[in-house]
Each structure stands twice: as C-alpha cells, then as structure tokens.
C-alpha cells in the first residue's frame, strides 16, 4: 500500500452559480501524509463542498488545491479521480453490478490484470469483514445497510488510493452498526496510512476517528486541532456549542427529572 499524499488547500473559495453568498470562503488547510482529518460542522456549512473540490467534482472559484505539490487544476479530472478513493453517504453501490464488480471498478479503470483484480477484490472484502465466497456474487439489494456500507468502503480503497474522501459514509445505518463500522474504520485506516478526509455532522464520530478535526461553519474554518485541543479549548462560542451539545442534552434530561420530582 502506497503512503498517503499531502494535500494543501490555499485560499479555496466556492460560490455556486446563482448564489450570492459563497459556500466556501478563503479556506486554507494542510493535510499531512497519512493523516485522518475529520471535517465537522452543521449541515449546509460547506463541508461536503470542501471534500468535493478535492476530486474536482466542484470547481474552485478562488484559491488552489495541491496534492503532493501538484496543482489539481493542472491534472486531467478523470485521471485525478481514479487516484482518489470516494465513498458517499448514499453508498452509491451500482445496483446492476454484483458486489465483486462494484469493488473492481477502479482497478479495472486503472487497467490491472484480471488475476490481480480478483485477488484484490477478495482481499478487500475480507478486510471489511465480509466473506468473499459469500458476498462476491451478491447484488447490492441482497445486502443489509451495514454490509453495503462495508462494500462502499472496500470499493473506495480498491485502487490503492493515496487520498481517501469519505462523505458521511456511515450516515445511513443505525447506531449499533455505525459504532461497529467506526471501530473497524479506525483499525483499517491505521493499516492503510492513506490520507483521509472524512466529513460528518456527528461530533462523537469526529472525536472518535480524527487525528485532527477541522470545524467548519458558514464556509469558513472555525477551528483546527486534535480532538483534545478542540474539546478543551474551543476557539469560538460556535465550536463550544457544537461540541457541548451533548452536555446540553444531559442538562435538559436533568431538568426534566427535576420537574417531575417537584410535581
């Protein structure tokens, strides 16, 4: 497995056609090789947009992004994307292709030999804890939500990407499966050492997975830091509120109990 790439985002700005307010504004960020960076923020804050600028699904209006020192604007977008793993919340498995064929897409695009692809598919399914013999020839409709998410992850890393982009990849499963997938993800990324950009609105997920957290609000970075730094020293009232929402829930529950006691 190749080492992760370095990603440097400089002054990135995105304004969607017809919008008056930019979705991303003057965003600067360096992601170290092999780092697991989690972008967290409320929905609509621009975190998915940031992720999608990296594989050029969304063009920048300002600034630049470089992967290992090469400006991505100078690369062929199709070739760029083949070198970047991509997993999305909706999973995006192609329903007309079997699990094996779904996982094999990028290796096929990269022109690997048939034997190498077959071996890679089986190894990946095993890596995400799906028995290749049982799952290789299934259709996505024959998978549970958690199994589909696993295949989604396997497909994203199939081409041995040096950069991995994940947009709420565990968004569509229940809490139990989700925490199981998070634990597995944690082990997996340690093994892969791929540079990972992971987007979520779930603060707990961010704290669990991240080497470093980037808090985004209204298209700007509110704070960057390790989970501990962000928790211990929130840089703004917004970050404080975001990360202590759980405390608020606890407080509410206590108040409700108190009220019942008083009645």
């Amino acid at each position: 497995m190749p080492r992760g790439a370095e990603i440097v985002v400089r002054g990135a700005g995105v304004t969607y056609p017809g919008a008056t307010v930019p979705t991303l504004q003057d965003l600067t960020l360096t992601i170290a090789p092999g780092e697991f960076l989690v972008v967290v923020g409320p929905s609509g804050c621009g975190k998915s947009t940031l992720l999608r600028t990296i594989n050029r699904l969304i063009p920048l209006n300002a600034g630049s992004i470089a992967i290992d020192g090469i400006d991505i604007a100078s690369l062929d977008p199709v070739a760029l994307r083949r070198g970047i793993g991509y997993a999305i919340q909706a999973v995006g498995l192609f329903p007309h292709m079997r699990v094996g064929a779904n996982v094999a897409i990028v290796p096929e695009l990269l022109g690997w030999s048939r034997e190498r692809i077959a071996a890679r598919v089986d190894a990946l399914l095993a890596l995400v804890h799906l028995d290749p013999e049982r799952y290789r020839d299934r259709f996505p409709r024959e998978l549970s939500g958690g199994e589909a998410q696993r295949v989604g992850v396997a497909r994203a890393i199939a081409g041995e990407p040096r950069v991995l982009l994940m947009d709420e990849p565990f968004g569509a499963v229940d809490a139990i499966v989700r925490s199981q997938l998070q634990d597995e993800m944690l082990l997996l990324v340690r093994e892969l050492a791929t540079t990972t950009l992971f987007v979520t609105h779930d603060v707990d997920e961010a704290l669990l997975l991240a080497d470093r957290i980037v808090v985004v609000n209204r298209g700007r970075i509110e704070q960057t830091g390790t989970p501990l730094e962000v928790l211990a020293g929130p840089a703004s009232p917004f970050v404080e509120r975001l990360f202590h929402a759980n405390d608020a829930v606890i407080e509410l529950r206590e108040k409700a109990r108190e009220r019942q006691r008083l009645r």
Partner: peptide
C-alpha cells in the same frame, strides 16, 4: 455522483 467521483 459516485460514477463521476470514481473516475469514470
């Protein structure tokens, strides 16, 4: 989105 993102 998945198809474009994977480099088809």
């Amino acid at each position: 989105d998945a198809a474009v993102g994977m480099g088809l």
